[in-house]
Write a protein that binds this DNA or RNA. Structure first.
Lengths: 353, 353
DNA sequence: CGGAGCTGAGTAACCAGTTTCTAACAGAGC
DNA sequence: GCTCTGTTAGAAACTGGTTACTCAGCTCCG
């Protein structure tokens, strides 16, 4: 064991030629090694809790690290280890509390396994989402795409580059990409049955982003229900996914003469509720409204929102399970489709006579 | 120029000894170099758009990269360059739309300069925030702390390790850490003046998280106003920062006998509005309510919320300007304090007689 | 026609870590 | 006392890039 604090760790301590100018006072493993009079290998072993270092030496290394305020470079560590211990999540709209709950579920589960979560928002833009997905994946060990707006052909072309990949509310048929989703069909059927039970016959659907496959799911089921029930009249209105678009749709809703509004999600429902209220329309007296997702404040609107609840945290947590399995080379298990639960609150009532 | 596709780029192509087992088929710069029959340096130059490569050679490199599906490792690149082109933002609560707007402002501005944003949420937990801050900073080139809940002594001890650092709605007196904030004092004064103008004399403040310095700001000003206006009675109620806490506070609000509620923020105001409504209290007939922040749906509540608007996007954008200056070694400029704008909507009205 | 200047590409050092070998040393057993 | 064995820690290779330096070959000019 060499005790001099010289440049013992560099195999060839020649004069520098190539490379990059850098802060020479930064605490690196080399400087710690020099200070402690040991090799870089030993410092590495101590920092990673290896037991094959003599206690007295380890103490000296720790003291040196402490004195220099040394923190191993995550970059260098990731490069050497071939993993970043980070996973990424991409969502279309961070403002939507539903995605926040997914985010929290995923973040918590990942954190419990010593992984960090990087979040990016595509702003409902499919082009941006593709770029973000590739970039995010390159910076982390795995990727979760929530309600991806990427068109199927592109997603199909991309999914191998993105692996390990888990999809939420989306699937790529014929591939092994794990997918966790909500049964929007069942949710919509429950909502329709509820409204029909109240005597509503003229429904209007406030459609979400066209690129959203869950919007398509809702639409398909609504149309099927309408086709299957004589006297059930369905109007479709292009809307969006935010308060603003729901609010802006109020007049158009009235113009349809519908007695019940099926909104794409809770935010749209809340916007519509607000817009109708401004127009002096009584909810649910004149018009009933349903949302979807059961975001936290749906319970607090005036009146409280009838909606379909989905297990948002569960989606995030299970997404981690699948991703972790994939990253460990294990089988991700079967895809799951969660069943929404209808929460009847006070924005729905009997159809006006 | 060597044309053979041999191992021309390795100075010492000896048998491997140390190192890490890795997927030998992965596309690396070395494999591209081999395939194109050039050195790694040349591949690097081509990938980075250097003009000092002959067009014919560059084309060959590009073809090889294409064929191998080569994407430079961001990790290795960051390590070599000493920068990650990533900055981090830490917020106490992603569910709060105010932070989402800051996030978007920052993300957009950073993106325009070729930088990515990493987001982390501390869940209002000061301990977690400290750990997250250090970790996030280690993975990126700069850090923005929004409404940090870290106690002053700890923040003071930490700020050098976190530099380049920009604070939002927070400052560390006596240091050069750039800070951008909202003048909550002025905002609260405007709200109080508005309520007093309506004849309100008994106010209740729904206080936010104790660790929030902006909560302290509001409290200080409210107390000063109360002390300065005879007949002005102020009650303080510990609340929180979410719908739920605001909603839960409704009964306690009524018990104070106050005619006006000054809520910590819009979410609390909305929760209180909902809770009062459930108790059959008319707003603003019996009780007036004010929020703070002007989050997107404040306009859509029933009735629309009187609140103080703050330039959330601007905060994010300016935070980037400061951070970018810091990272470039330039002067970050003077700290700024944005003035809120009172938006009188329909949750406030004359005090009941 | 020879030397200077310019260009283009390769060599090797470098970023900051991890890990495989290997060698030195100490203790145990004969 | 000497060999065998088991630690322990160092040397060096390795992760995948960037870049300063060098040098070969060509052009241009005197």
């Amino acid at each position: 064991m060499s005790l001099d604090a010289g440049d013992t760790h560099r195999s060839k301590p020649r004069a520098r030629r190539g490379g990059v100018r850098r802060d020479p006072t930064a605490a690196t493993i080399s400087r710690v090694a020099d200070a402690a009079g040991v090799s870089r290998a030993t410092v590495s072993r101590v920092m990673n809790g290896s037991t094959t270092v003599a206690p007295e030496l380890a103490a000296r290394v720790r003291a040196a690290a402490e004195a220099l305020n040394y923190e191993p470079s995550l970059l260098a560590r990731s490069l050497a280890l071939g993993r970043t211990s980070t996973v990424s999540l991409i969502v279309p709209d961070l403002a939507n509390p539903m995605f926040q709950d997914i985010l929290r579920g995923l973040s918590t589960a990942a954190g419990a396994h010593g992984h960090r979560l990087m979040v990016a928002e595509s702003n409902e833009n499919a082009e941006a989402e593709q770029i973000l997905a590739v970039e995010a994946r390159r910076r982390s060990d795995g990727l979760v795409l929530a309600s991806s707006r990427i068109p199927e052909p592109q997603l199909r072309a991309l999914h191998e580059r993105l692996a390990p990949l888990v999809l939420l509310n989306r699937e790529i048929p014929g591939t092994a990409v794990p997918s966790l989703s909500v049964d929007y069909h069942a949710g919509i059927r429950a909502i329709v049955a509820h409204l029909l039970g109240y005597g509503h016959r003229r429904l209007v659907y406030l459609a979400g982003p066209p690129a959203s496959t869950s919007n398509t799911d809702r639409l398909v089921t609504l149309r099927a229900e309408a086709a299957g029930s004589p006297g059930f009249d369905l109007t479709e209105l292009d809307c969006g996914s935010t308060f603003e678009t729901g609010h802006a749709a109020a007049r158009a809703v009235l113009a349809t003469g519908a007695t019940a509004v099926v909104a794409f999600n809770d935010m749209v429902a809340f916007g519509a509720l607000s817009g109708l209220h401004e127009l002096g329309v009584s909810v649910p007296g004149q018009v009933s409204i349903t949302g979807f997702d059961d975001i936290p404040f749906a319970r607090y609107t005036t009146p409280p929102l009838t909606t379909a609840s989905i297990p948002k945290n569960e989606l995030g947590g299970q997404a981690w399970e699948r991703l972790w399995a994939l990253m460990s080379g294990a089988s991700p298990g079967y895809d799951a489709r969660f069943q929404p639960r209808l929460l009847v609150r006070d924005t729905t009532g009997p159809a006006p006579a």
